[in-house]
Design a protein around this nucleic acid. Structure first.
Lengths: 353, 353
DNA sequence: TTGTACGCGTTATCAA
DNA sequence: TTGATAACGCGTACAA
């Protein structure tokens, strides 16, 4: 921040009061048109930029939204941020972006700085490692508006926008079941993260509905990344032949990619020996040797909806806290054993294997 | 921004002055340890969060870096932003993120709000459509520090951090030439963007060095996207057979992907009929049917270097304005006609075709 | 070690 | 339509 021209500078050179200058610049109707023109001209001439900091201090509003993401480079987040930016820009807000790097302490520090910077609200997606949410309670109690997106914390007085994880996992598992597979494994994420838990629930519900028995041995933790998926799949492949899964439902696409690598390295074919499906429709999914059947998450829409909800909370005291859900779409490709339907998006292919 | 506890609140409940509270909270040594403990305890008890806005107003520094990107979802930018975040976080700054959507007017508006919000400096990558940079001149003249990254504006009093585009384009073109190809086309970007111009220059320099003649017919504009690459390649394929290129150097990977699609649709093989190389090492490059030979851009490093340079400018008046260059790496894959070397990264394969 | 006075740049409020 | 004054919450400079 360097020395700048102020309202007072303009007022002095024009021999009028600061207030008149302020009013002229803010399109206040109670200003003579001649004076307004004069002020506008002089302001431009002097290179005046309003000091938004000073204004924020007076009006106790910063027009700023704090955003907390766990990992900017996860394909989901750039799209979500773009959606957020689109909405807040139109509403006259700006984004303060923070990155927790999946680290709880950094996330807490981020929330604290955002609170100190008096953002009008926070859009947050929590880190994998989070186990307690005291800091969110604290800022929410202070009256700061929080809306979670994608990875939510529930029952804490904040709205949440996410995809219907449980239902989506149910649907893709159901799709797999309809292929006739009986031994189906699940690579699950860390259960401290809401989406991991819900996808697991959806997986289980589908098995129950179709009365497929399963042992807990077929549910292994992979985390959200390729390496974890690879390791988890290796463990499954290390099972006695009879217990090995015929199909795998992965918690997300990266985990599925890792698993596919492990399957390949074991000399097995996808989907002939082992079918697999992912979750998220990563940009790489359709380019895999066996293009990956997966769930498309509308990240951009999630970002937009979350931003809209947050702004509603900010601008309307009585906006109700609620959990919003954004529809996903099943993307059918070869990895599940389907013939690819013409548009690759049919939801009802039933292929026996 | 909601009602909050202030220094004065703490001071009053403790019957001491605001200044003592301020000093205690800021680890000023001139405070009795007993008082400090008392203050710290009470601050926590009351849920005090320092008002960074008020502080910024007094000290005329916001500890905020404005970031302007043309398109958050371009694979380059999330990585670059992550690098930026890493550095500014360590240095005690936060990021205000804006997105121009490749639109000049939005970019100008973004710079203006960032200036109003009194950010300490700006990291900017300009939009494709930009033709004049008056707004940057203006804020730089005001004393705002600007560092461009990736897409730069030169000779305007701002540092720039980018990859060595000209040299990288030269190297990858040279690589293609060494395969023995004679008729080599270039899909170029919009010349108003610095990187497009420089890559074209590198391409030309390589042809000159190896005395390869070329007609301007083989340099066609594709823009930076897949559709443009597709259309541009179709134009090349529409040329009389004799004039058609045997190899193509694309301005970036998405353009190359589009071109590859056009080549496929024309019933030609890559690299047997037409070899092609890209630029940027998009995450999809190695997954293409013919894995794409390309130039790897260290986006994360570019972001870090740009952030470091900006902070140096902010914190050290005499930091010199300069253009920094980050090294790229040639990534050799099949699309250029190479046998793939063991690690996929050799720089000196020479294969005749 | 602690406290007082003032100012940062703006808007709200009330008076003219 | 315009202006004077106070206030936002904090740090600087100086005094005690």
């Amino acid at each position: 921040m360097t020395k700048r021209v102020t309202l007072k500078n303009i007022a002095d050179t024009l021999n009028i009061s600061m207030m008149t200058v302020s009013r002229a610049l803010n399109n206040n109707p109670n200003v003579d048109e001649t004076t307004r023109k004069m002020v506008l001209t002089k302001a431009r001439e002097l290179g005046y930029f309003p000091n938004h900091i000073a204004k924020s201090l007076v009006v106790a509003k910063t027009q700023t939204i704090g955003v907390v993401v766990p990992e900017i480079t996860h394909s989901f987040f750039p799209d979500a941020i773009k959606g957020i930016e689109e909405i807040v820009y139109q509403a006259g807000y700006n984004i303060m972006l923070t990155h927790s790097a999946e680290n709880t302490n950094r996330e807490i520090a981020a929330i604290e700085t955002l609170a100190s910077r008096r953002v009008d609200g926070i859009l947050a997606s929590v880190a994998e490692s989070d186990t307690e949410y005291q800091i969110y309670r604290q800022v929410i109690d202070m009256g700061l508006h929080v809306v979670f997106f994608d990875r939510c914390v529930y029952n804490i007085g904040a709205s949440c926008v996410s995809i219907d994880d449980e239902e989506s996992a149910f649907k893709i598992t159901e799709h797999i079941i309809r292929h006739g597979y009986k031994k189906i494994a699940h690579l699950r994420g860390p259960l401290s993260v809401s989406i991991a838990k819900e996808r697991l629930n959806g997986f289980r519900r589908a098995l129950r509905k179709y009365k497929i028995s399963y042992s807990d041995k077929l549910i292994v933790e992979s985390g959200f990344h390729e390496e974890g998926g690879f390791a988890a799949m290796q463990r499954l492949l290390g099972l006695p032949k009879k217990e090995r899964p015929r199909a795998v439902v992965a918690v997300n696409d990266p985990a599925a990619f890792g698993a596919m690598k492990a399957i390949k390295e074991a000399g097995l074919r996808i989907p002939e020996d082992i079918a697999i499906v992912g979750f998220s429709d990563d940009i790489r999914a359709e380019l895999m040797p066996a293009p990956l059947t997966t769930v498309r998450q509308p990240a951009y829409e999630v970002g937009k909806a979350a931003a809209r909800k947050l702004i509603a909370h900010i601008e309307n005291k009585k906006e109700s806290v609620e959990n919003l859900t954004i529809r996903t779409e099943l993307v059918i490709r070869k990895s599940c054993g389907c013939e690819i339907p013409s548009n690759g998006k049919s939801q009802n292919s039933e292929v026996k294997t």
